[in-house]
Simulated scan of single mutants.
Amino acid sequence: MKIIDLRSDTVTNPTIEMRNAMANAIVGDDVYGDDPTVAKLEKLAAEMVGKEASLFVPSGTFGNQLALLTHTNRGDEVILEASSHIVMHEVGASSVIAGVQLRTIEGENGTMNSKTVERYIRPNDIHMPSTGLICVEEAHGCGSVVSIENLKQIKEVADRHNINIHMDGARVFNAAASLNVDVKEITKNCDSIMFCLSKGLAAPIGSMLAGSKEFIDKARKNRKLMGGGLRQAGIIAAAGIIALNDMVDRLSVDHENARYLADELSRIDGINVKYDRLDINMVYFEMSENIIKEKKLIEGFLKNGIKINGIEDCEYRFVTNIGVSKDDIDFTLNKLKELIN
């Protein structure tokens, strides 16, 4: 039975080209700086996002937390949006690793008001922590893309106060596809950025942290401190090179499939699709338990080879990805209608 996995784009499998590249990768000890495949990936990644240098890291959470550790001093405060991944899904790591506290701003679909950001910056007061960093997320995990104008406004605030901006850009290439711009139009509004090679780009593992050469040199040592100094990492970096070269341009297909899925779901009585957050490959929707119980839906789908997550914050989320075709969406929709009836 074929599995249709709509839980996330983290479930993507590496392509045949990636597997072949991994098998044939030229490798060396990356802690010594001897792995040519990692070096090639880091150079490519930095160029693509318009930064001086980049660093290969094991995961997106690792990259975000490495950025916080590298940008800040212990006891600093970091300003970020209340529902951001760093706050909600990184197990409180900022307090453990960087020793910072988070000051959250309630945003609108992941977007912070720049005037509020400025108001939240701490004054030079003996009783208060120093604002050490501002974090933005693009695209946001709620399914929305933050406008370039908003990112620009927040960067102007940060520059006025001599504060760095880190971007959680796990899906920044999805954001660029949605906005129909070169990704550098987004990343020029931050001092550092983490982006994932997995998720929609389908590499099996790994993320990149990019910024100035000085920042990356410091981050490289902190990566070692955090246990992220890998050895013959070129085996996995090889897949990351293909992800950046070959997979970015196809993200629009996932977006088109998400829009199709949303439109078809919206035609079913009792389903309320969150169209205001349908910017990338994520479809959020509400469905009353009067139509079908959550447990029955999950179990019924699974019997037909369809994997979904349960309800979170009163919503379902279906995520399109390279492993989900339009035919798979039609199959899913038909099974949903059968289960409801």
Rank of each mutant, 00 (worst) to 15 (best):
310 G>E: 08
131 T>S: 12
59 S>H: 08
60 G>Y: 00
26 I>W: 03
171 R>I: 15
37 T>C: 13
165 I>V: 15
6 L>G: 11
17 E>C: 10
177 A>F: 00
337 K>E: 11
125 D>V: 11
156 E>P: 12
92 G>A: 12
79 I>N: 00
281 N>L: 07
7 R>P: 05
95 S>C: 15
158 A>Q: 02
186 I>F: 03
64 N>D: 12
38 V>D: 02
191 D>L: 09
184 K>T: 11
164 N>M: 01
271 I>A: 08
253 V>Y: 02
151 L>V: 11
289 E>W: 02
2 K>D: 12
25 A>P: 04
283 V>C: 11
117 V>M: 10
65 Q>G: 09
229 G>K: 00
161 H>C: 09
48 M>W: 02
44 L>H: 01
203 A>L: 09
219 A>N: 11
126 I>E: 15
310 G>D: 14
56 F>Q: 11
90 E>Y: 05
67 A>Y: 00
313 D>K: 13
210 A>W: 02
85 H>Y: 01
248 V>H: 09
244 L>F: 03
83 S>C: 06
108 E>Y: 15
303 K>D: 11
231 R>Y: 15
288 S>E: 11
272 N>C: 09
96 V>L: 09
242 I>D: 02
332 T>M: 14
196 C>F: 01
93 A>V: 10
73 N>H: 13
238 A>P: 01
15 T>P: 04
290 N>Y: 13
77 E>M: 13
182 D>L: 05
324 V>R: 02
228 G>E: 06
59 S>R: 01
259 R>T: 07
67 A>D: 00
313 D>E: 11
84 S>M: 03
299 E>A: 13
310 G>A: 12
8 S>G: 04
263 D>C: 13
82 A>S: 14
5 D>F: 10
144 S>K: 06
32 Y>M: 12
235 I>W: 01
4 I>C: 08
232 Q>H: 10
223 R>P: 08
95 S>P: 13
178 S>L: 01
226 M>Q: 01
204 P>E: 11
146 V>I: 08
150 N>W: 02
287 M>R: 08
60 G>L: 02
106 E>G: 13
175 A>E: 00
20 N>K: 15
333 L>C: 07
149 E>G: 14
34 D>P: 04
75 G>L: 05
277 R>S: 07
71 H>A: 10
243 A>R: 06
163 I>A: 06
91 V>H: 15
47 E>K: 15
40 K>F: 04
276 D>T: 14
186 I>D: 01
332 T>S: 15
195 F>W: 00
146 V>H: 00
176 A>P: 01
209 L>C: 03
217 D>I: 04
223 R>N: 10
272 N>E: 12
85 H>D: 07
41 L>T: 05
81 E>C: 03
67 A>H: 01
250 R>K: 14
230 L>C: 13
35 D>Q: 03
112 M>L: 10
278 L>G: 03
241 I>M: 15
14 P>S: 11
57 V>D: 03
333 L>R: 14
50 G>V: 02
122 R>I: 12
91 V>C: 14
147 S>M: 06
320 T>S: 06
330 D>I: 12
231 R>G: 04
331 F>R: 10
78 V>G: 07
250 R>N: 13
234 G>V: 10
187 T>D: 05
258 A>F: 04
26 I>M: 07
99 G>K: 04
197 L>S: 00
161 H>Q: 05
77 E>K: 15
135 C>R: 03
2 K>M: 15
130 S>A: 14
316 Y>F: 13
111 T>N: 09
270 G>Y: 10
240 G>C: 10
104 T>W: 03
259 R>S: 06
